[in-house]
Design a protein around this nucleic acid. Structure first.
Lengths: 211, 211
DNA sequence: GCATAATTGGAATGTCAATTCCAACTTGGG
DNA sequence: CCCAAGTTGGAATTGACATTCCAATTATGC
């Protein structure tokens, strides 16, 4: 054996500072290309050219393309969740929910509604073809949904949301609205569908407010 | 010129009865394979083998792979909408909406939550890489959303739904919930997310009922 | 029945992707 | 300073894929 095929779990390898940097650059470049052209639409040579690395570097750090894809999934999950903080951790009011969703809508407009959700796109492409990618994406969605649910649960604990509200289900519904809304917006090249979708679910959550 | 590259618009070609049958078989086979493995994950040789045709037949009828993909999009749109009828044309009560969405959930369970929405999956993969596919998919979603909106509009015209309800926006929101719910279900291998997503939106629609 | 057009088979072509290999170079710890 | 380990370059291999070609076969309108 020469390269660490499964880099994550069996961390039996030291990385030079330069090595770590190269590895990061490969992941970031791959994530960018895969977001725009899909996983299958992004070749190793494409990544080599865009990141300025040789084939051996990619295979040295990730074993094979699937290993790189898994690293990209983790990277996108971390990056997207980080980008949404600190808002993501204080989704405990209707206003906060609207503001948070609105930002995503503005971001979508800013890019001309090209591309959908960084995580959702990977999910749609990989869910049925790569079992480990699917579980990884499932946990990505869990990590995303968790803070939404927590925010709603806090509202409920404070007595602002009715006890009848199923906060877990509402969090799932909001995440689904985001995903579906993003997809429709991407296809229609207009953020309207996204805004209407999340607005409907937030309106619904609002109906559980204890006045 | 030999083959009719753009088969649809410029219908300048006669099809033998056998030819029509072959053409249909290719489309159906391609649609099936592409649903399971994605467009990029389905090769022409794959389709040849599964449909029992030669390469020249595929290129004869569709010009190139993109032409076939466009035909698959149209086919899936027609097929999926047809499958949902007649329910799709009578979505003018809360019960009808629930029943219609429930059937899709049961169907998703029946296939073990593998695969998402036939149209949504194509949309996610093609929206940013194929302009003509994107517009075709946009009209597919319009054709799907139309009957939902019509049903809601009828309820409103009858005075069952409040005038305050934006039926077009609600229809979009429901379609988005279906898409996002399907994606989450596909990744989680459980229809729960789908059911919670559509349930939340239908509950919201219900809140506009005039009592 | 004939001629024209539709249909089909199957090999050939050229491109490009994923991956492997090995040799050369660099770095960090002792 | 030295060695083992980490890092990199770049060519070579293997296989698949989209597409083209041409020749053979079959159907349809007249």
């Amino acid at each position: 054996m020469s390269a660490p095929a499964k880099a994550e779990e069996s961390k039996g390898q030291r990385l030079t500072k330069g090595g770590r940097k190269t590895r990061e650059r490969i992941i970031e470049t791959a994530a960018e290309l895969m977001f725009h052209h899909g996983v299958r639409g992004t070749s190793i040579p494409d990544i080599q050219a865009a990141a300025g690395v040789s084939a051996s570097q990619i295979y040295h750090y990730f074993g094979d393309k699937q290993g790189l894809v898994l690293a990209v999934i983790d990277h996108q999950t971390d990056t997207q969740l980080a980008r949404q903080r600190p808002l993501l951790d204080s989704l405990d009011s209707i206003e906060a929910l609207r503001e948070w969703c609105d930002r995503a809508g503005n971001r979508q407009d800013a890019r001309g509604c090209e591309g959908g959700c960084e995580i959702g796109s990977l999910a749609s492409e990989l869910a049925d073809s790569d079992q480990s990618a699917r579980t990884s994406l499932a946990s990505a969605f869990d990590r995303w949904e968790g803070p939404i649910r927590s925010g709603l649960a806090r509202m409920q604990a404070r007595g602002e949301l009715s006890e009848r509200a199923d906060t877990a289900a509402l969090a799932t519904a909001l995440l689904a609205a985001i995903q579906g809304g993003m997809l429709l917006s991407q296809v229609r090249r207009s953020s309207t569908a996204y805004r209407q979708a999340v607005s409907a679910v937030i309106d619904h959550i609002e109906s559980y407010l204890v006045r």
